[in-house]
Design a protein around this nucleic acid. Structure first.
Lengths: 205, 205
DNA sequence: ATTCTAGTGAACGTCGTCGTTCACTCCCAG
DNA sequence: CTGGGAGTGAACGACGACGTTCACTAGAAT
């Protein structure tokens, strides 16, 4: 593989004090997600994670026999639950709240790690990791949006035929795309803009 | 990096016959794009490309001093021009034709290679490569969609305020997202579905 | 205080890849 | 036909990362 000298990825997670058990595992998980977010799955190495967590490889290999197992466990431990769908009584407010939450999650470290995995989705090497992210992030996202839209249908704010898998995917797709193209920070792609310019026009009766 | 034994990526490009000059370069480019599409930028190696092109590393290094240079040249040589915007007189027909073209391009090997690059967009290692793909694929895509929508505005088929960068990004974002999640082959995400379920509802007056 | 176990840091042998070199050969142009 | 340059396949030394081992030590539990 690439022969570049790789600095430790992610951020160093604290003073070099001997840690044990759960404390050490949490530091390793944090380092793992940092490496994932910074460098993606392909470039993540056990040596890099160990260095970022300020521990030794032996401590990693005592727990996980492979990089994939480590990444799976780190994601399982750190990916937040999706939470309930907003129910404010207004479609626009629901969507803004939901997309604001999605956006914050996407910009968090676990979110950035999940994004890195999605970006390498067609890699056979990360199949199980991708499936975890699909189950824990992508599918719940689609469900929440579907739920909010369905409530809108019941209130007459949403055309019933607008609730399709394609429409449900628009917001996450846009957020990921804009983030990838480095446009995530611009004022044009906040939650309100996506709701007002894209989602509400799509679903309006 | 990952210590797996890597089979040659991409497809072998022909009989092991000595080739020279342009012929060899084209075989190398094809092998490069194949490796990009199959494995992405991170996992692409000079050794792998050389093996896939059935040539020697020396032949590669005589021309390109780095993996990045090689990938840049391969993409420059093989990414097709965007072509003109469709102008059928009907917004829907224009959009369907344009998105059909985009989809075909996306499923082609150069398109798959470009996709791999976009997916690693936040990688500092592929910055120049990403910029090439932005300039040759992403920006022209946005321009074509903008042009088609502007024509629709002139014909009264499109709300003028609907022509925003966000709206312009919806179709490519969706296509990439669905392709990444392995939903590209389903009947629900062809060009017509995206036009009818998403784009036309967004822009309708 | 003692015991036990997990953590540490270093070292190891192995492998894949890098970038380079080289002897030989092909093949094109004159 | 000849010369020159590009291509071939193999080999090389170096390096990063892998997965493993080990002597020592910290620190928790008793």
């Amino acid at each position: 593989m690439q022969k570049q000298a790789e600095p430790p990825c992610g951020r160093l997670t604290g003073a070099p004090v001997r840690r044990r058990g759960r404390v050490l595992e949490n530091a390793i998980f944090e380092a793992t997600l940092g490496c994932l977010a910074d460098s993606g799955y392909a470039w993540l190495t056990m040596e890099g994670v160990a260095a970022a967590a300020q521990t030794g490889k032996a401590a990693l290999y005592r727990r996980w026999s492979s990089k994939e197992e480590l990444v799976l466990d780190a994601l399982r431990a750190c990916l937040p639950p999706a939470g309930p769908a907003p129910d404010t009584g207004s479609l626009r407010a629901d969507l803004v709240e939901l997309l604001t939450r999605m956006r914050a999650a996407m910009l968090s470290e676990p979110g950035a790690a999940a994004r890195a995995v999605i970006n390498e989705a067609d890699r056979e090497r990360a199949r199980a990791v991708l499936e975890l992210v699909l189950a824990r992030v992508v599918d719940p996202t689609a469900r929440l949006i579907t739920e909010v839209l369905a409530r809108g249908v019941a209130r007459g704010e949403v055309r019933p035929e607008a609730v399709t898998p394609l429409v449900v995917d628009v917001a996450p797709a846009l957020m990921l795309y804009r983030a990838k193209l480095g446009l995530g920070a611009s004022s044009g792609s906040g939650a309100e803009a996506i709701v007002d310019e894209v989602l509400l026009p799509i679903v309006r009766p």
